[in-house]
Amino acid sequence: MSGGYGQYNPYGDQGGYGQNPYGQANTMEQGNGSYEMNQMGQQQPADPTALLNKCREINDGIADLRAKREGQLAAAQNGLLDANTAKEDQVAHQGLDLIEDEVNNGFRYLRDLLKKVKQTPGSGDSRVQTQLDVTSRNLRREIEHYQRSQSDFKKRLREQVRRRYEIANPEATPEELDQGVDNVLMGQEQTFQVYGARTGQAHDARQAALERSTAIRKIEQDMMELGRLYQEVAELVHQQEPAVEQINQDSENVAGNVADANNQITHAIDSARRARKWKWYALLIVILIIAIVVGVAVGVTQANQSTKQA
């Protein structure tokens, strides 16, 4: 059971999605961010097609996590539930821890990748924004499915802890049983004492209860972190809205300025047309005046010539 859990790499064969995304998750959270999306975080707006491809890769990663949850995680959970000896419990618990860590790191990696796409210039493109919203919902939905799966598994583990505690303490009253289970689940393992005949079965029951209580506490811690991660993913969508609204407002302002400019151009054309029309009127008047002056001059000249001839 333990041979395959630690070697599983869900993204290692995805052809460029990331050779070791789980190992990069913590590095990105520290602000290093030395992975493929760095090239898109420059000042120049990225090609919308490249951003859409990144969204597709995130969705592929979500599908990988879903397959892991439904396959390897479910198998590991059943392995711990079905374990009957202390050795089986230990091996199953180790395998389950590896699977849960890979899933949790996968969620962190996809969260960081989605955030990087959101912060890339050009992500305000309507096509990119629509796909980002869809991708964000897909990621949150898978987180919800994982949380539900872990919650159901936690309930089954608690039931087993109670049964194991009862086996190890057959003489305990119902009140002592409830209190003992609560103490074990809170990590107070020293309260789990094996009374009566210290049989191998009782010791196995004690070990099984301790293994399951440890698994329950880890699930509770993971659920708290996933709750914060879910909220961060949800807030990414809202963080984009002011920028989109500003873009829309800027577009409206540009449209208004263009309309004003068009009106001014129209007025200028009308004014130019009126000016040209008055120029023609003035030119006609000048031509008429010149014609009159020339006519008068010609008439006077002809009259003078007639007088001389007479």
Rank of each mutant, 00 (worst) to 15 (best):
V134P: 00
R137D: 07
L139S: 02
L139C: 06
L139F: 07
L139P: 02
R141D: 10
E142W: 03
I143P: 01
E144I: 06
E144N: 07
H145N: 12
R148G: 06
R148P: 00
S149V: 03
S149A: 10
Q150Y: 00
S151N: 08
S151R: 09
S151H: 07
F153W: 09
F153M: 04
K155E: 14
K155Q: 14
R156A: 15
L157N: 03
R158N: 05
R158W: 00
Q160W: 02
Q160I: 04
R162S: 11
R162Y: 04
R163K: 11
R163S: 07
R164D: 13
R164H: 13
E166V: 07
I167L: 13
I167W: 04
N169H: 09
P170T: 11
E171D: 14
E171C: 05
A172N: 06
A172C: 06
A172I: 09
T173E: 00
E175W: 00
E175V: 06
E176H: 03
L177T: 11
D178V: 09
Q179M: 09
Q179W: 05
D182V: 08
D182Y: 06
D182Q: 14
N183R: 15
N183H: 14
L185P: 01
L185M: 11
Q188M: 12
Q188A: 13
Q188G: 03
Q190V: 08
T191W: 08
T191C: 08
V194P: 00
R198Y: 07
T199C: 06
Q201N: 11
A202Q: 11
A202Y: 02
A202T: 06
D204E: 12
D204W: 05
A205P: 01
R206L: 05
A208G: 15
A208P: 00
A209L: 03
A209Q: 01
E211F: 14
S213A: 15
S213G: 08
S213H: 03
A215M: 05
I216L: 06
I216G: 02
R217G: 02
K218Y: 07
K218P: 00
K218C: 01
I219L: 11
I219E: 03
E220Q: 10
Q221M: 05
Q221N: 06
D222T: 10
D222L: 12
M224K: 14
M224F: 12
G227F: 10
Q231R: 15
E232V: 05
V233F: 02
E235I: 12
L236R: 04
L236E: 09
V237R: 12
H238K: 15
H238T: 15
H238Y: 11
E241P: 01
P242D: 11
P242S: 14
A243F: 09
V244A: 15
Q246H: 08
Q249F: 09
S251Q: 11
S251A: 13
V254E: 12
A255I: 09
N257M: 14
V258H: 10
V258P: 00
V258E: 13
A259N: 14
A259R: 15
A259S: 15
D260F: 07
H267M: 07
H267E: 10
A268N: 08
S271C: 04
R273S: 08
